[in-house]
Every structure is written in structure tokens, then in C-alpha cells.
Design a protein around this nucleic acid. Structure first.
Lengths: 223, 223
DNA sequence: CGCGCCGTTGATATTATTCAAGACCAGTGG
DNA sequence: CCACTGGTCTTGAATAATATCAACGGCGCG
């Protein structure tokens, strides 16, 4: 348990204290809910292994994927300082998470300034991430959205030491569509079109990006 | 300066300390930028008077309204714990804001747990707010979006002691469209249609909601 | 008073959704 | 081992929603 779930630039005693704040790992099977919208909030979670999706729920029951979370991501931040989780989290494949009891973390943040700073950065990053999604949903065309999504995944896999051009989608076309504000048929058509145009090769959930440059161009073409 | 910019449930010395952390008011004229995307981050701002918009900027230059902020709202949270502001803020009418130097606030949050908690709540609320916008952009039709926007404004005016059914829009049709992921013509047409259907009366930027119930129904009709 | 931004409205084009049918694939039980 | 089944994915055709292009009216500000 030497390894740290919350990647902070700490040392010595501080580090030990943080270690102590991080609870043990929880295993999740594909389809398991880590928490649901409205569950009482008690902890953050660090994804150790696997992939989760978080979903937001409208009053009328509509549900939408708010994000996909890979190894190293911290989730549950939206419930911070409040009573209840504002969204739900579900494992898209067998996964593992560390529980970080929030009561404890908040206390620790008071004693360890770098940790406080780090927590704030996580929160701000989450807000920035959401702003990026808003930009995507509000001003991009369908093909730009999918290209953007794929490039984002690519980048994140790269940062984790996996191939940035060849990976397995852990979500269905419908889930991708939900995240991108598109219908599943539209997503499917786009994959086919991208393949025709030589941007990628796709076979079910296996994707191989063959022209990252072209995908990039596709995203940034509207002024 | 007895009045508090950051509405916290504090008392006595704590309150005085917070008072001290809140800088003086800044006046903004219509069109003035409070900060721009990329400006170095140093403070949060509490809106004392007036209306501001925050905008996010895509790499390719596209700009989108991320939110409208009224009296009492705290803005600038997205830059928290980072070097730079992730979005820009512009006054839509003559306005006043309090500057809350962040260095100081962060320090204070360590000493005053309720303030820390409060800060976290603000951050979480911002994330939840963004999730609401994502839901709007990702799964609502144009008329639902506009109805939702108007009801949201209505509610916020009500909470501030203003009329919830009759108010002046401080933003252009284009800005509304930018926020809602629609073109200005679409927004204009929707206003006209809503008026025809007796949901509201509109004359330029003056809006009078005549059937809040119908607007509500409009928003929540898709299951 | 006039100029520029803002807003409205119409006609048309484009984009994405909807509806529908069928293919594929993995897991299951006979 | 094979047929069956449910979920997923693909594709086509028709339709609906929204954007685009264009023209004009109006208001406010200098």
C-alpha cells in the first residue's frame, strides 16, 4: 500500500498521513455501481484499474454520460462539501478503486497545505474539464465531437503508457452518443465514415487511429 | 464594509477575519472585462451588483458563454489552485464585484473549517451547475433549452427578491444562443413562438413570463 | 440625424434523428 | 455441437430540427 492514490508532491510524514487517509481498494465488476445519484456523499474515489462512467440525471429521468474515467482519475468531486452525490458512477469493465473518506481528507487538507492546494487543483480541473465538454456540446458538429472524443481518449491512454493509436472502447455506441449529445446511429455512421475516409480503422469496439493529424484538423476547423 | 461578500455561517472573530480577506469593490462598466482567459489567477470575485457572463475559449478561437452571473454569485472558481484563468468574465451591464484574494482565502480556509467547507460547497455547486448545462446541451431540444434558461433566470431573480416573472435580459440573442448551443435566429424565433403560444410576452429584452407552468411542462416532457 | 448593432422573419439548405430492417457476436442451454 | 437469444452494431430511407443566407425594421448612442 506504499503506492499513492492521490498523486501529490508530498514527502515524509505528510505522505504517511495521506496514505493513512486512503482506504482500501474496492473491486467492481462490469456494470456495478460505485455510487448512484442521490447517495449520501462520504468519499472520493481514485480509479486504480479499469474504466468508469459518471452519469447525470435530469429531474425528468433523462440520463446522460458526464464523463469517462480511467486509471488515476479522481471521481466523486461533485458531491464534495454537500450531502449527496450529484451523479452516479458505474464500472464499464471490471475495475478497482481506492476510497478516500472525505471527512478525513478535508481535515488533512487543513494541516497539509500542499494537499489543500492539490485538492483545489483537482476541483478546478474538473470544472475546466466540464467547460471543455460544454464547448463540445454547444459548438461542435457531430463529426468534430467524435473526433474530439477519440483524440481525448488517445491522449489519456498515451499519458498512461498505453498505445495512443490503438485501443478498445469500453463503452457502447449509445454511451458514446449520450456523452456527445448524439444518437447511437449517428455515432455508428460517423465511425463508418471516418473509416471510409481513412482516418481510422474500426471493428466493433476496437479502434485504430490511422491519421491523428486529420482528426486534429477536423476538430479545429471552425473559427 | 460590514456586509459579507462570501455568505458563510460564521460568527465573531472568524467573521472579522473573512471580512479582512475580502478586498474592496471594483466597478465595471458594461463591456468591461474582469479577467480574460489565460490571465494569471489571483482572486475570486463576488458579484455585488449587475450581471456578468463567463466565456470559455476553444483552442481554435471559438468562444462560448459558460454562464451568467448575478448578484451574490462567486466567479473565477475554475482558476482555483492553478496558474491561469480558464475562462473570461465580462460585465453585461454596469456592475460591481468584490475581489477575494485567493492566497489569503486559502490560508484562511485552513484556520476556519466552516469556511473551508463553504469553499468546497461553492466548488461542488459550480460542478453541479456545469453538469446541468451539459444535460441541457446534450439532451434537450431548442425549445426546452430556452424554457429551461428562462426558468433558471426566473428562479434566480426570485431568490434575490426581484420579480420572477418580469425581468430584463442583459444579454443579446446571440449570447443566449451561445450559452444554449443555438444560433441567434433560432433564439429569436423561439421567443416569437413562445409569445404566440401565450407562454410569455417579449419586447426586445423585456420578458414577462405569463405561464410558468407551461414552461415547466415544456422542459420536462421527454422521458 | 444617421450609423451600427440588434432583432425579426422568410426561404432554403444542411444536419442529425427517427423508424425500420437486418447482421453480428457472445453466451446459454438443449 | 448447434440453435437460440438478447444485446449491440450497421445501414438505408424518410422526416424533423436547426442552421444558413438574406433582407429589412428599429432602437439607441454618439
Amino acid at each position: 500500500m506504499r503506492e499513492l492514490c492521490l498523486p501529490v508532491g508530498l514527502s515524509g510524514d505528510d505522505l504517511k498521513a495521506v496514505d493513512a487517509a486512503v482506504g482500501n481498494r474496492t473491486r467492481l465488476k462490469k456494470g456495478d455501481s460505485l455510487y448512484r445519484t442521490g447517495d449520501s456523499f462520504a468519499a472520493l474515489y481514485a480509479v486504480r484499474l479499469g474504466t468508469l462512467k459518471t452519469t447525470v440525471l435530469a429531474e425528468d429521468g433523462r440520463e446522460q454520460v458526464a464523463g469517462y474515467h480511467l486509471q488515476g482519475d479522481i471521481i466523486g468531486l461533485d458531491g464534495l462539501g454537500t450531502e449527496r452525490h450529484g451523479c452516479g458512477a458505474v464500472a464499464l469493465e471490471d475495475s478497482e478503486v481506492c476510497t478516500i473518506p472525505f471527512e478525513h481528507l478535508e481535515e488533512l487538507a487543513r494541516d497539509v497545505p500542499p494537499l489543500q492546494r492539490n485538492l483545489h487543483q483537482f476541483l478546478a480541473r474538473e470544472i475546466s474539464r466540464d467547460h471543455g465538454v460544454m464547448l463540445l456540446l454547444g459548438s461542435m458538429r457531430a463529426e468534430e465531437r467524435l473526433a474530439s472524443f477519440l483524440l481525448n481518449l488517445s491522449e489519456r491512454y498515451r499519458a498512461r503508457g498505453y498505445s495512443s493509436t490503438e485501443f478498445v472502447l469500453r463503452m457502447t455506441r449509445e454511451e458514446i452518443g449520450s456523452y456527445l449529445g448524439l444518437k447511437l446511429e449517428t455515432v455508428s455512421r460517423l465511425f463508418s465514415r471516418f473509416q471510409e475516409e481513412g482516418l481510422l480503422k474500426v471493428s466493433g469496439r476496437n479502434v485504430k487511429l490511422t491519421s491523428v493529424a486529420a482528426l486534429r484538423q477536423l476538430v479545429g476547423q471552425r473559427g
